[in-house]
Simulated assay, not measured.
Amino acid sequence: MIKYAVVDAVEGTPTTPVLQLPTPRPATPDAVAEAIAALVDQLSTRPQAPDPKASIGVALPAVVRHGVARTAANIDPSWIGTDANRLLSERTGRPVHVLNDADAAGLAEVRHGAGRGELGRPAAGTVLVITLGTGIGSALFVDGRLVPNLELGHVELDGARAETRASAVARERDGIDWPAYAERLQRYLSHLEFLLSPDLIVVGGGISARHEDFLPLLHLEAPVVPAELRNAAGIIGAARHAYQAMPTAVQ
């Protein structure tokens, strides 16, 4: 599904309900661009319509470098090499700024959620945001600055990619209980802690709604906390990314 909303990027809050649109099949660049252009037109007719000059942030399940998609995790392979910024800007008639979807969720959490520090600013030090879903997404921040496109779900765990062992889908597929899942997650996060020495770990994704069932079973040096923004994190982070790209934005 394509999830979308109008967002107050300064406050980090949606000003419309979070809406959904079926992802085109196949999810080619042209098909997705047409869907996004249609939803922008739909939002423009609402009472909370965005400013006609407002830019658009888009979170894409891909490594994104300078607006160009370099991988295609859960979308059509034809995205690889596509200048997503240019394509979507041309189709919508607005400036569009694209980033990796896990980076978007992380950006929202460090600015407006569980990773924010004092006075609403991102927490100091190194913050690792992990999203547990179909796979494992990851975002790393150092003093509030994003280190983009880290694919830490592909770190090896027990001879396989970590996301095939420790994602939310892996728990359901293997039919394991919460203690057994926490044991897998412990092994994975302990390895990341050894590699990255984070000061804070934020765990998101749909499974974070059940965080009481597994987070208390983890034992790490860094505090581990559940994400706060849940379903809206990627949308808020994409909007924040677009806002930060404006020349006059207050960071």
Score class of each variant (00 low, 15 high):
Tyr181Lys: 06
Val40Ile: 07
Ala233Asn: 03
Leu217Val: 04
Asn231Pro: 02
Leu217Pro: 02
Val10Ser: 10
Asn74Thr: 15
Gly115Phe: 08
Glu156Gln: 15
Phe141Pro: 05
Ala114Gly: 01
Leu43Ile: 07
Asn85Pro: 13
Glu109Asn: 07
Ala239His: 12
Tyr181Asp: 10
Arg121Asp: 12
Asp83Gln: 12
Gly115Thr: 09
Gly159Thr: 14
Thr13Lys: 11
Lys3Asp: 05
Leu152Phe: 07
Thr131Phe: 08
Val202Gln: 06
Ser55Thr: 13
Ala123Gln: 14
Thr15Leu: 14
Ser78Ile: 04
Asn100Ala: 03
Leu39Pro: 02
Ala123Pro: 00
Ala222Asn: 09
Pro47Asn: 10
Arg94Ile: 04
Leu185Ile: 11
Thr248Pro: 00
Phe141Ala: 08
Leu189Glu: 07
Arg173Val: 05
Glu11Cys: 10
Gly125Ala: 03
Leu132Trp: 00
Ala114Lys: 01
Leu146Met: 09
Pro29Asn: 09
Asp213Glu: 13
Ala124Lys: 13
Glu228Trp: 01
Leu88Lys: 01
Gly12Asn: 03
Leu157Gly: 11
Val142Asp: 10
Pro226Ile: 06
Pro47Arg: 01
Leu88Ala: 13
Ala9Arg: 00
Val224Ile: 14
Asn74Asp: 15
Lys3Ala: 05
Asp177His: 07
Val32Gly: 04
Ser55Asp: 15
Thr248Ser: 13
Ala33Arg: 00
Leu87Asp: 09
Thr15Phe: 11
Thr45Phe: 11
Tyr4Gly: 00
Glu156Val: 14
Ala72Ser: 09
Ile56Gln: 04
Gly113Arg: 02
Gly205Pro: 00
Asp101Ala: 02
Arg173Met: 03
Val7Glu: 04
Ala49Cys: 05
Val110Cys: 04
Leu119Tyr: 15
Met1Gln: 13
Ser44Arg: 10
Thr82Phe: 06
Ala245Phe: 10
Ala162Pro: 02
Glu34Tyr: 05
Val63Gln: 07
Ala182Arg: 12
Val40Lys: 08
Ile80Arg: 15
Gly67Val: 04
Arg121Gln: 14
Leu192Asn: 11
Ser55Cys: 15
Ala209Lys: 11
Thr28Glu: 00
Thr126Gly: 00
Glu172Val: 14
Val96Pro: 08
Leu107Lys: 03
Val7Phe: 09
Val142Ile: 12
Leu87Phe: 11
Gln186Glu: 03
Tyr181Thr: 07
Ser89Thr: 11
Arg65Ile: 10
Val58Glu: 10
